[in-house]
Each structure stands twice: as structure tokens, then as C-alpha cells.
Nucleic acid binder design. Structure first.
Lengths: 166, 166
DNA sequence: AATGGATTGTTACATTTGCAACCAATATAC
DNA sequence: GTATATTGGTTGCAAATGTAACAATCCATT
């Protein structure tokens, strides 16, 4: 009994698999840095970083921008609010939407964490070497571009995109 | 109140973030293919693919190889066994270890799914263009090489590597 | 203004996941 | 040989996540 047929597929070479592994590794490692420093979870860090970058956004904006589901965003925002790192401000014209902004405290922490992030990235770039780092970036740019075609710029109409069953 | 300080960090350019987004997108898309076709979950697919490639492995092997937590592996293996896609065979020398192999049925399904995978990859390569695709691959290769210390999340001896306090 | 349809954000529930405790078997120390 | 540590694998429980339902608000058509 050989047990093994021809290994039709080499998992190590398979793009989705590699992407996942690389992403997990890098992301986990970075997460452990800011978690130690601030205790933030990943969704919370993302929300913070998005807000820090854009100044004022609604929860939906954050979700769309960072590709997080709205419940995740909702909870992350809640957590950041509990820390007094952000404040909500109901829109005066449309009382459904809340504009989110970092408080002074939030900004202070954002700056510290952003520094950690840049630091991390710099070290990563050094480790990989500029050339490979840039190739990686170019590749991912392409992936995003390729699949972004199907993500409508402002609205997602799943109708045609999603699998019909389930 | 302006609300926005200088956006110290551009999330879209930030490597961990991009990696995650790219991986999620690609992986989700591929998952929807084999899920529709077979109903496998992601851990199950990974276990199957690993076994299909290597013929006979223990649960620990699968875990180490695919960077999955051992409970995840355990459950995935259980599920595949329930489908009669794999069988366990207790080692005669060490009765703790179980050697896992695909049944004929499992192999048949593996082949079908491997074809889907190769198909997917081929289309991806076409979409990105060979050059970018290869650059992406080279980049990820480098990431893996750089962080290889992080291989088996289960086996890690944290002492020197991990953060000292929680 | 009134009904129906979107849209924003939250909450309830089910599923998935990871950590820790656990059993069984082996290896090591005494 | 007996005690202790280690290892392969499973299970219980708690935390994280996604789906679906929801309340509140706005918009469109009538």
C-alpha cells in the first residue's frame, strides 16, 4: 500500500494557502506587539487606525474601508468608546448616522501605536530586503486590483456575485 | 476641532493590513468554490489537501504542516472520518499515534478538489499576469523564510520568543 | 401623511475558535 | 519497579465571530 496518489497539488505552492500563512504569521506577530502595548484586539486596532488616518468616519465607513463586518465594527467602536478613546456625535441631518472621532486620549494612543506600526514595517522591510518587499507589495496591489473590479466602489450588490446556493 | 491629526500611518500601504486583506479575499473566494462543491470547511479542506499530498500523516504532522491548532485538526479529521474520506490506523509501536490516510473515496474527492484548486490558481495567475504573480510568490517566500521560527503554533517554546507578560 | 422600501447601527443566537484541562500511552528519573 | 515528566490526541468551556432579526430613521411614491 503506497497510500499516496500523485500529489496533484502542492499546498506549499498554492497561492491561497501561502497568502493565508504569510498573512497570519505577519499579522499575528504584529498583533502581539500592540496587544502587549495597549491591550487592543485586532478589530479595535483596525478601527483605531482607520479613524486615526481619516479623522472622522461613520461606523459603516470603517466597515467598508477595513473590510470588517458591521457587527465587528460595532463592537470595536463600543470598546474604544468605553476607553474614552473615541466619541460619537449624531449627525444633525440624519439621526441614524454617528460620526466617530478620536478623543485627545485616543489620538495620543493612536500616535504611539502608529509609531509601533511603522517601526514594525520598517523592520519587516529590512528583513525581507527592499526588493522582495516591493515585489510583495506589487503583487498584492495586483490582487486587490483584480478583485476590486467586483467590489462596487460605493455599494455592494451581492446579487450576481454570491454563490446561488447557501 | 479638526479631529484629524496627521495620518501618521496609511493603512492601505501597511503590509500586515494588505496581506490580510489580500489573503481574506482570495481565500474566501476559493473557499466558496470548494464549499459549494463539497461542503468542506476550511480546516477540513486543508487537512484533506495535506493528506492528499503526503499520503500518510499523523494529526500532529498535519497541524505542524498547515499551521493549524491541534484542536482544529482534531475536529477536521473527525469530520473527514465521518465522511469516510479517511481512516485512522493506530501505530503498532506507539499506540498514541494514529496514522491517517485517505480512503479510496477520500482520494477520489481529493483529486476532484485538487483540480478545482489548480484551476483556480491558473485563473488567478492569468488575471494577475505571470510577472506579478511570480513577484507575489517571491515576496511570500521571503516572508515565510523570515518568520519560519513561528512554524508550529502548538509546539512553540515561548520562553525566549514570546512576550513575558501575558 | 402614509405606506413601503432602504439604510444605520445594535442585539440575540448559533457556530467557530482557542485555551486549558484532561486521558492514555510512552519515556525518563529515581 | 514506581514516580514523574512528555507527548499524541480529545473534550469542556469561554471568547470571538457571523447571520439574521431588529428598532430607529430616512426617502420615495402615492
Amino acid at each position: 500500500m503506497t497510500g499516496a496518489t500523485d500529489p496533484l497539488l502542492s499546498l506549499e505552492q498554492f497561492m491561497p494557502y501561502r497568502l493565508n500563512r504569510a498573512a497570519e504569521t505577519v499579522s499575528r506577530r504584529f498583533a502581539s506587539i500592540y496587544r502587549r502595548h495597549s491591550g487592543l484586539t485586532r478589530p479595535e486596532w483596525r478601527a483605531l487606525a482607520t479613524l486615526g488616518q481619516y479623522g472622522s468616519l461613520t461606523a459603516t465607513d470603517i466597515g467598508r474601508h477595513s473590510a470588517m463586518h458591521k457587527t465587528k465594527v460595532s463592537r470595536a467602536v463600543q470598546a474604544l468608546e468605553d476607553r474614552r478613546w473615541l466619541k460619537r456625535q449624531t449627525d444633525s441631518e440624519d439621526r441614524r448616522v454617528e460620526h466617530l472621532t478620536l478623543t485627545a486620549l485616543g489620538q495620543k494612543n493612536y500616535r504611539a501605536l502608529a509609531r509601533l506600526a511603522l517601526d514594525f514595517e520598517m523592520r519587516l522591510r529590512e528583513t525581507l530586503g527592499a526588493e522582495l518587499f516591493d515585489q510583495l507589495n506589487a503583487g498584492m496591489e495586483a490582487v486587490e486590483a483584480a478583485y476590486d473590479a467586483n467590489r462596487a466602489p460605493d455599494k455592494q450588490k451581492p446579487a450576481t456575485l454570491r454563490s446561488p446556493a447557501s
